[in-house]
Design a protein around this nucleic acid. Sequence first.
DNA 1: ACCTGAACACCGTTCAAGT
DNA 2: ACCTGAACACCGTTCAAGT
Lengths: 201, 201
Amino acid sequence: MERAESPPPGGVRADARRSRARLLEAARTMFASEGVDVSFNEIARRAGVGPATLYRHFPQREDLIAAVVGASLDEVTALAHTLDAELDPAGALSQWVAALVSHIRRVRGLSEEIMRALEVPDSPLAPHCAAALAAAETVLVRAQQAGRAHPEATTDDIVKIATAIAWTGEQSDTTTPATDRLVALVLHGIIGPGETQPLHA
Amino acid sequence: MERAESPPPGGVRADARRSRARLLEAARTMFASEGVDVSFNEIARRAGVGPATLYRHFPQREDLIAAVVGASLDEVTALAHTLDAELDPAGALSQWVAALVSHIRRVRGLSEEIMRALEVPDSPLAPHCAAALAAAETVLVRAQQAGRAHPEATTDDIVKIATAIAWTGEQSDTTTPATDRLVALVLHGIIGPGETQPLHA
DNA sequence: ACCTGAACACCGTTCAAGT
DNA sequence: ACCTGAACACCGTTCAAGT
């Protein structure tokens, strides 16, 4: 979906279009290498535009973040339906959570942005979060109906816990297995009536 | 325990002692109100000393943080033994995790520091984390021996998950019940063989 | 031995001026 | 309509100079 703001009558000027594209490209590469907390001024520098131009196109930092990583978040959302169709209830739920965690982990600092967007609903990232919550409902409800998920768990719980696990070890590039462990542990439950399945999901 | 650095032969000068005390006091109040990410310069200003004096006493930001909140962390550590003596295995484990979460939540930004300290072992906060891990072992092992905790769960898992939950909602002052829910959910397990206990711990 | 305040390079953000 | 570069107030950190 496109920006809701109506473009000027004569259409968007060519230089504006070009600036926006360069900013997005610069942000994409810098987010991927340095994380979401890179200097705003440096993104502008890298894009070859003035700082004010960056602010004109993306008034809030989160606007830029949403423009860059929103689509990637939507991918995970879409994945839920695939998993739901192909796997058993418990499998679909746990695979989806694992996928969500690994997606969030791909950009340093993203977990914090998502957590904020979950709390303040007028964030630019909020629509993508809402979509993810809807996707979570698909897999969660099915697992609950099959008696394979706690009946009181909510989609909010699921997404928050996934985000929190993704945040874990964000400081020092912990390898994926470490967070996989936590996902498995959380999903299988720490205190329970003595199930002894091994932890590797 | 005191700083390992040996004091100068003539003892610590009075003004140095006073500066240190003022810095700690200023940091304590500002950490409590604003969180751990307050401006270093402003702490110095509040303490009535120059910036360089702050750096002299606490070369790394984490040195100051450890000096201010270390003791509070040690309280939770001590609590483990009390709970262990008074409660059943599962109760002691879950109460301790809940206490850990609520302690970390009292200072905004602290969760991030603790997570870092868990990963990089030469952090000034690391000793306090190590103590907490040892305390976790007490309650965890007992719960495991009683068959009330996953046999493959480690103390590292416990403390990391608690820290991650504490981080949850740190952005927007979520009320305690919200994190209590997550603690209960994580402890009881999301996917398990159909236990239907209610979520309020 | 310890403190001070000025200094440096940076940051986020805005504003007047250009085309 | 859009961009520019200078500007402002701030930050973390360091350094020469004081006592």
